[in-house]
């Protein structure tokens, strides 16, 4: 070998002076390690500060309304900015009803699609369909709203609502003139929006069910569906409930599409044909018009209620999704 490896002093000779292991560079290096650690920690902490700050700032801004109305804020239904009387019940009602309606439609479809994609579909079908459903989740809310106003609502008005009125009109649910926009339209658009989300999360939950569970059932002579029902769905049950709750969380806070389709009338009615109003919509519509501190405070209090509601639902959902298999993972939204 032409070049012999060796230290700068020359190969083979003993190093005359032994430099100490404790060097002057150590202090600087320490500084680098410590500094880097502190900077990243500060970034992590900023998230904590932000969430805490968000809660504090909102409570502060909502304070005039919180003090003035107390519990009456959520139990009365008179929303009158001119007289400065604020009761948010119709919005709470609208949010809950439209979200539950959406769940009613989205859960069977979403779970069905997830089961199909993770268990029953031919292998070749899975990736493209999964991809399409992911695309659906990427469509912005305002685009759903636009489509809802110009395609969905007219369709409901001219076809669906008259048909429902004729056949099921004896139910209070389907009474009233067909406007197109209203609770039904809002529930439907919400269902369309959260279904890809429920499908995606449920599919991940199902994929996390260990293979051995499936094989055990198959080895007992179970059919494809029986395997799914007995081994997979039962194992992933809490995760699936979590997926549904995550969908509910989204529906509760969804703003634009609902604002464009629900009709924006603060009214509590049993009929799905009648326009309603949601918490998110009232904030979207009235926030820039709120001139007095009390009015602004009332709107921010609605926002706080929405925050608390979604936090509760999401918190439960995360715990349930985490409980299946892999622990905390990133849930793409």
């Amino acid at each position: 070998m032409a070049v012999v490896f060796g230290r700068a002093g020359g190969a083979g000779t003993a190093t005359p002076t032994i430099p100490p292991l404790v060097g002057a560079r150590r202090a600087r290096r320490r500084f680098g390690d410590r500094g880097f650690r502190e900077i990243t920690r500060a970034a992590g902490l900023s998230l904590v500060v932000m969430v805490a700050g968000m809660a504090a700032v909102m409570v502060h801004a909502a304070w005039p309304s919180l003090r003035r109305f107390g519990w009456a804020f959520i139990t009365t239904s008179n929303w009158d900015p001119v007289a400065e009387q604020f009761g948010a019940l119709p919005f709470i009602f609208g949010t809950l009803v439209s979200s539950l309606l959406a769940l009613l439609l989205a859960v069977p479809l979403g779970l069905g699609a997830a089961i199909y994609l993770s268990e029953l579909a031919p292998r070749a079908v899975r990736p493209p369909v999964t991809f399409l459903i992911e695309l659906l989740a990427a469509i912005p809310s305002v685009v759903y709203g636009l489509w809802g106003i110009f395609v969905l609502a007219p369709w409901l008005r001219t076809w669906v609502q008259p048909a429902l009125g004729h056949t099921l009109g004896f139910l209070p649910l389907f009474q009233g003139p067909p406007y197109g926009v209203g609770m039904l339209a809002a529930g439907l658009i919400l269902a369309i929006m959260i279904v890809p989300f429920i499908t995606a999360v449920s599919r991940e939950v199902l994929l996390a069910v260990p293979r051995t569970q499936r094989e055990a059932a198959l080895a007992l002579g179970a059919t494809g569906w029986e395997t799914t029902r007995v081994a997979v769905l039962r194992y992933g049950r809490s995760g699936l409930i979590g997926a549904i709750l995550l969908g509910l969380g989204r529906a509760l806070g969804e703003t634009m599409a609902v604002t464009m389709l629900i009709g924006n009338r603060p009214e509590i009615s049993f009929s799905l044909f009648v326009p309603g109003y949601t918490m998110a919509s009232v904030i979207a519509n009235e926030f820039t018009e709120a001139t007095s501190d009390l009015y602004l405070g009332a709107l921010i209090e609605v926002g706080l209620l929405l925050l608390v509601l979604t936090l509760a639902v999401n918190g439960m959902a995360r715990l349930l999704v985490w409980s299946v298999g892999r622990g905390p993972t990133v849930v793409r939204e």
Binding site: G253, I283, G303, L306, T310, L311, N314, A317, P328
Partner: peptide, 10 residues
């Protein structure tokens, strides 16, 4: 994760 679930209007 909590922040991820907070409605964007909030």
């Amino acid at each position: 994760d909590v922040l991820n679930g907070v409605p964007s209007i909030v």
